[in-house]
Every structure is written in structure tokens, then in C-alpha cells.
């Protein structure tokens, strides 16, 4: 069963709001990572507003699904997701990266309700996800662990240690999502360190591999359903995305990995996203 038109419309409205939030916030504080946040908006929306079993009133519930943003620099999209979901007031977004705030530059579980694991140093999230997934099995709990991984981040070797471990333990309660936008801080992944055929690599590591357009809400819904139906191995979703998606001058540009937004750029971005200032 796919998404109803009504649900798609609801999710689309959320993605629009989240993109606006990201631009508003990053323009206001003049620091933070827009590119990799905009590329993961539909992924985050699908997870938190369609698939994950979470309750903002009980952020520590032992039965909740877990989410790890291994690419911790996409904090802005994580924060706007949690704010839209009700974990904290949306006004808090305006304090991003400011002294004394809860919204640290990278997700901090000690300060922010709804963050399951602090991240920032790349290449660690999937390993931690394996520990969570194994714990769920030990405790006979049916929660899923979702790990969002950047494509550039796959250059960190520890990911591949974790992919081996996920296969060894046949963790069908672990779902990795690759935000495959093809761009990293210094340039394209192709120029900096080519990733090769990811599908073949993941299949060779004995993972269930599914691919989709990471901006297509209907397609994302289907791959998450497929991932949960897989009973014998962990699933990795290769979500093809566009870095900076939704803001024309940011799309596909490594220069927008982590750059402050100017006034003119801000006005253009908001207009493109269908908002008004």
C-alpha cells in the first residue's frame, strides 16, 4: 500500500516548511551547513512523519525507533525535523550555534530532546547503530535503528567495518540510508575520492540494497517498507539526492557545504521556496 494523495500533500507541506526553516535559521545565525541539510529533507520527513515510532512526549521511551545522523553536520535538517515534530519550540531554531543554546553545531544528545546519539566526527554512526540493533535483539524489542550516512562520509573506513558487522549479525532491524548527493566539502565525491559502484559494494558486503530518488516521497515510502520487510539481513537505502536541493544556486555546489547565506541569496532562496519575507 502506497501513500495516499492526502498523505503526500501533508508530507510535501512539511518538506516545504523544513526547507524554509533551514534557510531562515542559517541566514539568521550566519553559520552552519545548508547543502547537506537540504538534500536530506525528504528522507527526514519520511522517517519522522511516516515511518518512525517516536513520541515527542516520551523521547526516552525504550521501545521507540532510534535515529542516528551519522552525518552530524546536517544538524539543521535534524533540528527542524524535531522542532516540527514537537520536541522543542520552533523559536529555538533561531539560537542555533549560539553560546548556551541547546542546538549545538552538531547534534548533542545531552542537550537536545529527541537526539539519540551525538555525532559530528564522521564514520561512527553505523557502528553505534549496530550496538543499538544488537541490544534490541538481546532485549526482545522490536524497534528499528535508522542511520543516515553521507556519501562523502563513506570514505571513512570504519563504515566498512560496520557494514561487515551488520552482515555478520544479520541485523534486519537496522536500516542505513545513504544521502547520495555526490558532493562533499572540497568538491564532488568523484573528484575527491570516487565511491565506485555503491550497489555492488553493499551487495558484496551482504546487505539488502534498495535505491530510490531521495526527493520522491512516494518512492522513499516504498523503500522503507521494503527495508522493513527484509527478514534476513540489514538494508541500506541508496537515496539519490541533490545537495542544496530546492535552492537553485546551491544545488550541486560544494561551496554551499557550509557557507553563510548573504542577504540577496537569502531573498532569492526564500522566493524560490515559495515563501515571502
Amino acid at each position: 500500500m502506497g501513500l495516499t494523495t492526502e498523505k503526500v500533500n501533508e508530507l510535501e507541506a512539511i518538506t516545504k516548511k523544513m526547507r524554509m526553516n533551514i534557510i531562515e535559521t542559517l541566514y539568521k545565525v550566519q553559520t552552519g551547513h545548508p547543502g547537506g541539510s537540504l538534500s536530506a529533507v525528504e528522507i527526514m520527513t519520511t522517517l519522522y512523519f511516516s515511518h518512525m515510532r517516536v513520541d515527542c512526549a516520551a523521547p526516552g521511551c525504550p521501545d521507540r525507533d532510534r535515529f542516528i545522523a551519522s552525518k552530524g553536520h546536517c544538524a539543521p535538517v535534524v533540528y527542524t525535523t524535531l522542532a516540527c515534530k514537537g520536541y522543542f519550540p520552533e523559536e529555538e531554531l533561531g539560537n542555533l550555534r549560539q553560546l548556551g543554546c541547546i542546538l549545538q553545531g552538531h547534534p548533542d544528545m545531552k542537550r537536545i530532546p529527541g537526539i539519540d546519539l551525538s555525532t559530528g566526527s564522521l564514520g561512527l554512526g553505523l557502528s553505534a547503530g549496530i550496538g543499538l540493533a544488537l541490544s534490541a535483539r538481546l532485549d526482545n524489542k522490536d524497534y528499528y535503528t535508522y542511520v543516515l550516512i553521507g556519501d562523502g562520509e563513506l570514505q571513512e573506513g570504519q563504515n566498512w567495518e560496520a557494514f561487515m558487522a551488520g552482515a555478520k549479525y544479520k541485523l534486519n532491524n537496522l536500516i542505513a540510508i545513504i544521502d547520495y548527493n555526490g558532493v562533499q566539502l572540497d568538491g564532488t565525491t568523484e573528484d575527491i575520492m570516487p565511491l565506485g559502484d555503491l550497489r555492488k559494494k553493499f551487495e558484496a558486503f551482504d546487505w539488502h540494497v534498495v535505491e530510490c530518488d531521495g526527493h520522491d516521497l512516494v518512492a522513499l515510502d516504498k523503500v522503507f517498507i521494503a527495508a522493513k520487510q527484509e527478514k534476513g539481513m540489514p538494508t541500506v537505502i541508496i537515496a539519490k539526492t541533490v545537495k542544496g536541493k530546492g535552492v537553485s544556486f546551491m544545488e550541486g555546489k560544494n561551496t554551499w557545504h557550509g557557507k553563510a547565506i548573504g542577504k540577496q541569496e537569502y531573498e532569492t532562496a526564500i522566493a524560490e521556496l515559495g515563501g515571502s519575507i
Binding site: 525504550p62 532510534r66 539519540d116 546519539l117 561512527l124 554512526g125 557502528s127 553505534a128 547503530g129 549496530i130 550496538g131 543499538l132 540493533a133 544488537l134 541490544s135 534490541a136 532485549d139 535503528t145 570504519q158 567495518e161 560496520a162 558487522a165
Partner: peptide, 13 residues
């Protein structure tokens, strides 16, 4: 490295 980060996951649970 994988071992230490896995342990973090176990501790979370």
C-alpha cells in the same frame, strides 16, 4: 574503532 562505537550503541540501550 567499530568495536568502541558499537559499545556506544549498547550503552544507549
Amino acid at each position: 574503532g567499530n568495536m568502541a562505537a558499537m559499545a556506544a550503541g549498547f550503552a544507549l540501550a
